[in-house]
Amino acid sequence: MDKNIATLAQLLDAAGTQWRVYDIGRRIAKIDKTTFTKIENADIPYPFPLQQHAFLAIQFWDPKASKEPYIWFLKLPLDEQSKLIQASRNHFASMVIEALGTQLTGDDQQAGQLDNNPYVFTPNANKRAAFNALMKVELNQPASIYYEHVQLYFSGKLGFDDWQSLALQGLADFVMRLDKDQNEANLITALSDIPEDVIAPLSALLEHVAISTVLAEALLHLGKQAVNNEHTSLTVHYLRAISFAPATGLTAQLIDCILVSPLGQQTDVQLTIAGRCWQHLQQPERLHLYMDLVAQNKTEPTLFAGIFADLVAISTIRPHVLALLRIENRSEQLARAIGGLFK
């Protein structure tokens, strides 16, 4: 690696590019450059660890050119404290320099040499669509050709049963443009009428958006209905859709409603809470109740250990999870599950 280039940030700067970094593991979330520098220097843990890795999207472009931005989707390993393993980062950077030097833009054929890089990964279809839609918004580019058809659908003009013609990219463009036209109002009106075949991909896109309080309230109402009807899949969809709402009290309401219902014992629901709503588990009583239910899961005996490892890796949740090890008034199932962690 070039002695003057010690980090990815320095490499991108040396190439004369403009660049942005996003977490794309748990949800698509921008990481500011100051935080990214601290992550690269291992000064702080990675804030959104997933499976002991940092899943990153790095977008960069030549400010003097009009070409589309380049994107690296990277999966970089983390240590036991969720800090970046710098040797792996250095390995990736050295491979980039070997393939491209510091000329990162301009030669698409050369850039293709990185496709088989061990640190490069391909996000799932939902995240690719959401990230593409978000980039178009941030770069003031037009939406895909599928966007207007989705707008028509949510306006009710096509009939809500005519969902097969909807394209995932069009849905993503719509979700990332809820503040345009009448998109949000139309969505709220349509929510109770659209079939689950639309709600499923819609929720997988909404989980990346800081939705309005009005939309969150509508999702909470429908989520509580799904819980009362013991409809597991719909409950999961509404929970995902509301998970990133700035009105955190509304998301917490839905979680609490779930945890005191029979659905709180369902594996898919438990996984969704850990994977999408981890911030809400900083509340000790809620975390205790949640982990107690996970410990009682009879269909997935290894689930407790997996969720414990997932949550303890997140620096904001770690002290609360570790506090469970010392708590006295715990159920027999929770005590047994905790004991199993040390066998």
Rank of each mutant, 00 (worst) to 15 (best):
T299P: 01
L215D: 01
Y146E: 07
G170W: 07
I211E: 01
R286W: 09
T102Q: 01
R276G: 01
L100W: 15
W19V: 03
Y22H: 13
G340A: 03
H237L: 15
H208G: 03
L50W: 03
P246H: 01
D43Y: 11
R330N: 13
H149C: 08
F244H: 00
L324A: 09
R336D: 11
A190R: 05
M291E: 01
S233H: 11
I242Y: 02
F154T: 04
L334I: 13
R20C: 12
E285A: 05
D162R: 13
A129K: 12
S212Y: 01
I211Y: 01
L11K: 00
T299K: 12
A323I: 03
D162S: 13
Q169L: 06
V236Q: 14
D179G: 02
R330W: 09
N124P: 11
D162C: 11
P142I: 14
Q333A: 15
P77R: 08
N132S: 13
P201D: 01
T102S: 01
N329Q: 14
G106F: 15
L287M: 14
N132Y: 12
I258Q: 05
L8P: 00
I39S: 09
F304Y: 12
Q81I: 06
N140Q: 14
Q182C: 08
S155T: 12
K157V: 05
A93W: 08
F60N: 06
D161P: 01
Y290K: 11
D256A: 10
I85S: 07
L205R: 04
S203I: 00
S165H: 04
S165A: 09
W278K: 00
L56G: 10
A93R: 15
L178R: 04
H149M: 08
Q253W: 07
